[in-house]
Design a binder for these strands. Sequence first.
DNA 1: GTGAATCATCTTTTT
DNA 2: GATGATTCAC
Length: 722
Amino acid sequence: MVSLQSLTRSQLEAVLHKDGPLLVIAGPGSGKTRVITNRIAALVDSGVKAGCICAITFTNKAAEQMRYRVESMAVCRGVHISTFHSLCVRILRQYGQLAGINGNFSIYDEADQRRCAKHAVERAKLDGKQFAAAKVLEYISKLKNDLVSPEDFAGSADDYFRKCIARIYSHYQAVLAENNALDFDDLLVKTAYLLRDHRMVMEELNNRFRYLLVDEYQDTNHAQYQIARGMSLLHGNICVTGDPDQSIYAWRGADIGNILEFELDWPNAKVVRLEENFRSTPNILGVADKLISFNTERKIKKLVPVIQKGCDVETGVFEDEQAESESVADGIANLLKNGTSPAEIAVFYRVNSMSRMLEEALVLRQIPYQIVRGIEFYNRKEIKDLLAYLRLIANPADNGAFLRIVNEPARGIGKISLERLEIFASKHKMSLYSAVEKIDKIENLGPAVRLKLRAFAAMIEKFKQMTKKPVAELMEHVFQQSGLVDGLEREDSQGHSKASAVENVEELISSARKYDELAKDTPQAGLVDYLQQIALYSDTDAYDPSSPKVSLMTLHAAKGLEFDNVFIVGLEEGLLPHQRSANDNRSLEEERRLFFVGITRARKSLAVSMCRYRTIHGISARTIPSRFLFEAGLKVRDSEKRQVENKINDFKYDDADSQICEYDDSQERLFVKNELVSHQKFGLGRVQEFHNLGENSIVVVRFISGKTKPLMLKYTNLTKVR
DNA sequence: GTGAATCATCTTTTT
DNA sequence: GATGATTCAC
């Protein structure tokens, strides 16, 4: 335990507040983590049993880190620390039967969900093109996050589209139930309902966890809010920590209102504000502060710097992403040369696809890096295939798993045969797997296919007998016996075997071995538990703070982390703020917070950059500097070194003042919403937004093609149509 | 009926 | 540039 003397007065207040609701509004770098761990220690110190404390974090990784910190204080061993989703899995396995949930449920990932959604659209007899799976799922997910059931929604849906969605939603839930599967959102939804509808569950959980702690509370959605509330209803010992300015998950249903209205919900709540910043230099904080002040929906909060002045935030403008990447890599190489540890350097970007160029530049300079969530490990084909075998073994009702592997490796069981199997299964309301057991009753199947399907089922039955063995052993066995390994080792037409795929599977098996080791003494250990855990594991969790590597990650993944030196790339309109968020003010403010989060990760140095041209979807296009650069007061100037003298570029970004007078100030340069305009390349369009930023004014135009584009007035030839 | 090959489509962020 | 749907050759 850190000596209490080293805490500030407000930190101390939060640490020592024992009973009753507590809201900690903690700005970036304000020592929140320290407060949480010390508060847990203080609770245990005052006689609370460690097992009665439950801390909920946002990511598995955060849980792991907190577990590490808390358990390093020996008395605190036994505190329950997990994410909402893991906690829900545990609750559902224990109490799920009350809501008709079989304990060995599968957890469906995006691909499985898409399949179910398609199925649901079919059953609702609607057009799969008009109701694309991704769109439908997005809608359903929103409903679930708000705890709106299919019945509720069917009752309130008043237009055609919503009525259709309501039908699909209800079919979708039926499909999931048939597969004995829950999707990510269901984990929360079912738990919230369990707490609401079964007083016994609520009481038991309240008695078990006398103290509840929720971190990153600004990013909780309504379902999570209800779960947290239900779990502390009887004792009221709920402590939430977070920062409204760092809410970046509204798109996933996070409700910033949860934190803003905590005091309404718990009128006797104590509120502590941590506004001092022990992390960043005043230079960095100044930029963050200026930027975030452009947001209207916020509680005014100052960032009070504590540490001394450092160097200024650098802004680079580059020709294209290659030049940008090289400059970043050079900058990193320089830092390393001066003795900085690679673990203290990070590069952030808005979208995952932007990592490629950076990687190339780093590889070239032999700089070690780790990429947080690159091509996701658990999304690889070979991994999903093997896991699908295990899923089917654990949960024979899992049609998704069945379809994935019944012909993987190829066994000569084709689409048409499977269609017939599916028709039979749905007619008799059974799973595909049990339909195979009744295969003699199915008409229209060739004798060869019958034989093949029977052999497949026999193989799965054999695997089933091994489920008591350690997961790693079973996995190894399945990998060998299923024929997957042969498929991967066999050389393809170009003479390459998929050695890396085999390596990936080996990695999976060794991680299963680790699981067997760690879980062997817990009562729930086994195949089902393993699969349920792994389903919640994302590659974000692969980030290892102790390894001496430069970190590359999205701005979202950067939440909760800090580094001495930070690079943020791609400060361009359409990218940051992202195109799809530029339409309404709320998501624009979220983009601003996203940049804010990125900025405030940096302790000593921060460099942001943009490109004049960026290649998106194979086409290189002229970009517009992000409005956030101007808002943050960042001077955009050419970085001299890497500039290619290009006469075609009839403009320069440097020293904005020098070019104010490049165009006259007439009314021609002021636009209003819905005004008709014409662009020499894109044609006719209507003004959607106009941001009057002087010479940096931005017009967002929806063109006749249906595309909406942000344009920087000074570089575009936009004329009014009268 | 099966499996490979081509074509078309969409591409933000994540538990 | 990956994923799924469709086509095409066996």
